[in-house]
Structures are given as structure tokens and as C-alpha cells.
Design a protein around this nucleic acid. Structure first.
Lengths: 256, 256
DNA sequence: CTATAGCCTTGACCTATGTCAAAGCGGAGA
DNA sequence: TCTCCGCTTTGACATAGGTCAAGGCTATAG
């Protein structure tokens, strides 16, 4: 896959300008945001979006570029509008844990203290909305429904994190890979894309660091699943799932 | 340790009645809540606490008793006032991941959908405040600072969950145990207790299910740390840390 | 069209941790 | 104070997954 070809992994089509008053600082209207329904802007009315547009800055970063690093002062929060990112934590000796993959509609940068708790890096060319922390706080004060939405999103993230703990602590390599593929598939659907085939914008190393495995084990497990007829590896780092029910049973350790 | 002896693990002393108007349904005044500063009630003024007292129900459960099970309709949220609980998720074949240990001041039961995402069980006799979900929502609507506090607490939980992912995915058994002990020590301090010795109200099996290890490995690793002079195992399931700096370095994989 | 650099896959071997089994031991109740 | 019972510890052995080491593809750049 071309590292810069965003469309391969996010295919919602271009934003259709509707000539609303609300415009971001770089000119894109929030009212035309293709992923608004997924973001924390969802509960706002079009009139209120103007307030958002006033404080938002739109930015685009190329594949492989870091957005921020763990420990850096947390001055901004971000919302992914297009592309794909990974967030991760490091141990002093370089061991890495990818704590999440982010796609359009996902939120990042919320920190409970003054600095980011993890690093964030684009895996393909990625577009984001950026909010100053204090400006966002003002916004949350004015629009309580936005704060409620954010709390709801955080609760969801928490549930996802607990699932990931179960995966990391108690699942086998095969169960981890099966769970991972299903997670990506479901998220594609949530973004309005088809559940199958599944796009993998991340490397085997990234997948390993997300699942608590090595590159080699990830690769071997993909091969096993392919040999067993569970999946097919397509060109462009895509995976076709033969029987999602079977994969789901595999993911929960219920054999096949 | 006596399974019912709460004081062993939580020693803030008895609540001192201050004769405030705010009282819980079982008579205990919220104004005298010994852990109020730690809970989501913290930002409320005494006058506002009366509202909380009106909808709260105080309850006490014995060691080993479940509070709720994963998948059950999430009708209530809870705040631990005294004692210790564990929350966990199960795989169909019985494999278990303990996703957290809860002590006084901790919040549980927040669900982003209609049912609980995990099971909760008391490890020692435990007291909790219970809130009906809809009543709590009304409260959050009236007191936005409470909702902000809840968002802040959720962000903190999220950061803790990411640390736990790093632990589960990338740390060795020795690093996991060291991290675990430090976490308990710090939380004791946050609750106003001494950092050392550390009380372990949970079984070796619980610790293993929290750290992604078996009982045997947990036990062997404690023995190793004891032999290395890092810790001492005291009576009553307590652990004395010889040098917390050394343990901290161990926890991050920086040798000793 | 061809070269090239970076993934990805595969193989052989190793080890941290799991599994199975059997003693210790401490605390709750009599 | 004594007696169990359940948890913890320890030992011997097994294995999933890690490590080290070659190749093999594939997609961009020239």
C-alpha cells in the first residue's frame, strides 16, 4: 500500500461543501465534516458548530510522522478526520506497547494531567482537527452535551481497554489475531465501510506491539489462519475473512 | 488476614459525624464521608451534598460476594467507601482477567451501554454508595462540575489502563510484580495511608489473573524478590519494600 | 522496465512461563 | 489451645512463543 494513499483505508469520499457559516481555520466547513456523527461534535447543532469552527485548526501529516510524544506538555487535543494513526508507550529499553489504532472519528490527546501519557504517530497520510486545550474547555463549559458526549466516548474507550487487557493477559496468539481482525472489521463498519475485506495500514511489527507478540509470531499466525482457510491475504495489505462467525468463536477460545 | 476485617486494609478511621443535613438513606451523612475528596462528589459544596444524600443508598457486602456480573443490566453505579473489590472479565472456558482492584474512593459501574462490561466482587467486607443510573444522570445535569470530575476520573482510568496494557504486553514476570507492588503502595498513599508496608487483600490467583501470570509464577517471583532482599513478606499478607527506588527501576526493566 | 530497500515469511533452536503434583503453613472456628 | 481447610510454596517437566538467522516479495524510484 502506498504510505500516502489515505483513500485506500478510508473511503467515505470527499467532504461535500455545503456553504455553511461554520468553517475551520483552514477553510473546511465543520458542517460538511464527513465523520461528524462519530466525533465529539456529534451532539452539536449546525449553528453551534460555528463556535467549533472558530477554534479548530485543521492539519494534515504524512505517513510516519509523529504528532506528539509521551511526556510532552498536552496543549492540544485532536480528532482524526481521515487516515490512520497509532498510539504507543515505550519502556526505557525500547520495548513498545501500541495501546491503540485510531481512524476517522477517533479522539486523541485527552490527558488527565499536564502531559501526554503516550506518543502518537501517523501510519498513513492523516488529517486531523486540532483544539487548544483551554479553548476546548471553554467549549465544554458552553455546551454540556459535548462534555456528556466526551464522557460517553471515554467510557467506551475504557470498555475497549478492558477487552484489550483480557486479550493481552489471557488469549493465545491465534485468539489475539482473530480478535484483532474482528475489531478492525467492526470499526470499518462503524465508519460506513464494508466489514470485509479488512485493510491493514499497520506493519506486522505494529500488530505485534499491539497484541503483545513478536513480528514473527504475527506472521506465522496469519499463515496458520490462511492455511486453515479462515482468511485470505489480498494485495495491498488487505485480509478477506472467510467466515466471521468462525473467526469470532476462535477469538473467544471456543475452538473452531 | 480476617476476610471481614476491613480496618486491616483501610485505616482512615471512623467517619466523624458532623450533624449535617445531608444524610444517606441509611443515615450516614455525606458531609462526613471519609473519602469524599477522592470520589466524584469532591467538587460539590456541602449544601449540594444534600442532593446526593437524597438519592444514594449505602450498602455493605461481605468478602467473596459478587456485586454484579458482566452482562447484567447496568442499573446502578457505585462508589467504594471502605474495603476492597476486584473487577474481572471471563472467557467462555473460564480464563479470567482481573481488570482492576478497587479501594475506597474508587468508582465502578460506569457503562457506556445498557449492561456491565465486567463482574465485580468484594475481596473483604466492603461498604459502597449506590446510585440509580437515572438519578445520577439527573444529578450530573444539575451539577456540571460533577460531570467534569467524572470525565477527569475516566481520563485517569484510561491512562491507568494504558499502563496496564504495557505491563501485560511487554513486561516480564519480575517487572510485573514490581509494578504491581508499587501501584498498590502509591494508592495507599493517595488514600492517606503509609506507602509501606503494602497490604495485599487479594489472593495469589487474583494477582496472577491481574498480571497475566499463573499463581505459581506469582509465588515464585515473590520468593525471588524476597531472596534478592527487595521485599519482605510480613504476616497478614503484607509486603515490606526495602528500597522503593530499586523496585521502581526493576518495574521499568532497568535492571536493579 | 529494472533496481533496491524495507517489509514479510520461514526455519531452527531456546527459554520464560505454564502445567501437574505434592508438601507446607496460617488463620478461622471449635 | 488445637485442628483442619484452603491457600501458598516448591519441584519436575512441558510448551507456546521468543530469538536469531536467512531468504523472498513487493512496491516505489529511477
Amino acid at each position: 500500500m502506498s504510505a500516502f494513499d489515505v483513500s485506500r483505508i478510508h473511503d467515505l469520499g470527499a467532504a461535500i461543501p455545503r456553504d455553511l457559516n461554520a468553517r475551520t481555520s483552514s477553510g473546511a466547513p465543520c458542517g460538511a465534516c464527513p465523520v461528524r456523527g462519530l466525533t465529539f461534535c456529534a451532539p452539536l447543532e449546525e449553528r453551534e458548530l460555528a463556535e467549533v469552527a472558530r477554534i479548530v485548526k485543521h492539519l494534515t501529516i504524512p505517513a510516519g510522522q509523529p504528532l506528539f510524544d509521551e511526556g510532552e506538555p498536552a496543549r492540544h487535543v485532536f480528532s482524526v478526520t481521515e487516515g490512520a494513526m497509532k498510539v504507543y508507550k515505550l519502556l526505557p529499553d525500547g520495548r513498545r506497547q501500541v495501546t491503540g489504532f485510531l481512524f476517522s472519528g477517533d479522539f486523541l490527546g485527552l490527558a488527565h494531567n499536564e502531559s501526554y501519557a503516550y506518543s502518537a504517530e501517523a501510519m498513513v497520510g492523516t488529517s486531523l482537527c486540532r483544539f487548544g486545550r483551554s479553548e476546548l474547555e471553554g467549549l465544554l463549559e458552553r455546551f454540556p452535551q459535548m462534555e456528556r458526549r466526551l464522557l460517553h466516548m471515554a467510557s467506551h474507550e475504557l470498555a475497549v481497554a478492558q477487552d484489550q487487557m483480557l486479550l493481552l493477559g489471557r488469549k493465545t496468539a491465534k485468539e489475539k489475531i482473530a480478535s484483532f481482525l474482528l475489531m478492525l472489521s467492526r470499526r470499518q463498519e462503524l465508519r460506513g465501510q464494508s466489514a470485509n475485506p479488512i485493510a491493514l495500514p499497520m506493519s506486522r511489527t505494529d500488530i505485534g506491539d499491539y497484541l503483545g507478540l513478536t513480528t514473527e509470531t504475527v506472521s506465522r499466525t496469519f499463515t496458520q489462519l490462511k492455511t486453515a482457510g479462515e482468511i485470505a491475504l489480498l494485495s495491498g495489505n488487505r485480509v478477506e475473512v472467510a467466515d466471521s462467525g468462525g473467526l469470532a468463536r476462535l477469538a473467544e477460545g471456543e475452538g473452531l
